[in-house]
Structures are given as structure tokens and as C-alpha cells.
């Protein structure tokens, strides 16, 4: 889903940068204000971890493999979509400048798709599902929908850029990411959230919040 340079004309690429930039700035403000200072090294290390995780192939079936994006995963752990935006911005920047994976002019569009849309759609789907379903099912649904919607937006961007017609693009990207999202993003996110809940439940921000509430109740 990394759109390379030149596949979106400069004027449109600038528009995506203008849309993505406020999200990046607000995510920085979030990291500064909402979090304890401790979160700075944690977010940086996590960004490096997500970079390695994105390089790990996941078998999808029929001879194809995919990789995780991870925005929803980070958003669920920190209980905020801004964490997903910030970590993915860092990862995409290093991928773009260091590895020519994705582009420089198209970085705005890529951050918008994989960081903002995937993070926000994924996280809010998770919180909505969490009311009625188990944690692993909610994480699965959130990560899957987050990736699927961002793939659809990516197909629309390519169509607007004139590099790929809309209907076949939607079919190809939609169908491909429906399957990749199911296994690569959905299942793996739910496994990872399950593993964190088992081994380090204190890492999940929602557990911390409920923990403090429980402590307050106990004191009262």
C-alpha cells in the first residue's frame, strides 16, 4: 500500500500533505501533553519494533504473503489513535528516506492512509466492538476494518491521480486487502493483543485506566 513517488501528481500530493500535517502535529502534541515523559523512549523503540514487524512476512495463502501495518495495534495499546498516527509517521519517514519504500512527495498520502485512516478507523471500531464482544474479537474487527478502509482510500487516490482506473482498482485493492486484512492484520493483531494481555497486562492503557478505577472504588 506504499504509494511510490510520481504515482500521484505533485499538486494532489501536496493536498494530501496538507491534510496529513495537522494530524502529525496533533499527534506530537498528544505525545507531549497527554503522556508522561516516559512515553518518548517507548514510542521511539516501538516505532523501531513496528519497522521490524513490517518486514516479517505473514503467509496469506495461495502463494501470497503480506505484512502488518500495525497502526491499530499501537492505537489499542495506548488507547488513543494518535499513538498509531505518530508511530506510523516515524516508520513511513524512515522507510521513505532510508529504503525508497513509498515516496517522499507521496509520504503525506501514505501517512494519511496507513497512519491516520487505519489508526482512527481501527481504534474506534475496536472500542465500539469492545462493548459487546471479547477483546480479541474486537481487536480483530478493528484491525481488519482499519486496513480495509485505508486500502479503499488508497485505490480512490490512485484513481484520482489517473494511474489506476477506479472500479478495477477498488476491486483489486479491496479484495486483496479484504483477505490480507483478515489474516495479516486482523488475526495477528488479535494474537498480539492476547499475548500482551497475558504477559504484560499493564502495558494496555485500558487495563491501567480500569485498574485506577478499581483502586479508587476499593479506597471509597
Amino acid at each position: 500500500m506504499h504509494i511510490p513517488d510520481a504515482y500521484i501528481p505533485l499538486d494532489q500530493a501536496i493536498v494530501y500533505w496538507i491534510i496529513a500535517l495537522p494530524f502529525i502535529i496533533i499527534s506530537m502534541k498528544w505525545a507531549k501533553n497527554e503522556l508522561e515523559e516516559m512515553k518518548v523512549p517507548i514510542l521511539a523503540a516501538l516505532a523501531a519494533g513496528i519497522f521490524a514487524i513490517q518486514a516479517l512476512n505473514i503467509p496469506i495463502g495461495m502463494g501470497t504473503s503480506g505484512h502488518m501495518v500495525g497502526a491499530t495495534l499501537v492505537a489499542i495499546v495506548f488507547a488513543s489513535p494518535w499513538a498509531g498516527v505518530l508511530v506510523l509517521t516515524l516508520v513511513l519517514l524512515v522507510q521513505g528516506f532510508g529504503f525508497a519504500d513509498g515516496g517522499i512527495t507521496t509520504l503525506g498520502a501514505n501517512i494519511l492512509n496507513m497512519g491516520v485512516i487505519s489508526g482512527f478507523v481501527g481504534y474506534y471500531t475496536y472500542t465500539t466492538l469492545r462493548r459487546n464482544f471479547s477483546q480479541s474479537l474486537a481487536a480483530f474487527g478493528g484491525a481488519w476494518l482499519g486496513l480495509f478502509v485505508s486500502a479503499i482510500v488508497c485505490a480512490v487516490q490512485m484513481a484520482l491521480a489517473g494511474t489506476f482506473p477506479l472500479v478495477p482498482g477498488l476491486k483489486a485493492m479491496g479484495l486483496f486487502h479484504l483477505i490480507i486484512g483478515f489474516i495479516g492484520e486482523g488475526l495477528i493483531t488479535s494474537i498480539v493483543i492476547g499475548a500482551i494481555a497475558k504477559s504484560r497486562p499493564d502495558l494496555l492503557e485500558e487495563n491501567r485506566a480500569s485498574g485506577t478505577e478499581r483502586a479508587k472504588e476499593a479506597l471509597a
Partner: peptide, 28 residues
């Protein structure tokens, strides 16, 4: 079984994720 393979890959990713988080804590 595919399910087993996916669980193993999921475990590797979980381990990288948790170790990244713990590395951040240690660095702090």
C-alpha cells in the same frame, strides 16, 4: 496446519512488540 503457522508468526510479532516496549522502558 495453517492455524499453527499463523500462531507462531503471531507469537514472533508479539515478542518483538513487547521487547520493543520493554526496551523503551529500560532506556527511560
Amino acid at each position: 496446519p495453517r492455524k499453527w503457522i499463523l500462531t507462531q508468526v503471531g507469537n514472533s510479532i508479539s515478542s518483538i512488540f513487547i521487547r520493543a516496549y520493554e526496551q523503551g522502558e529500560k532506556s527511560y
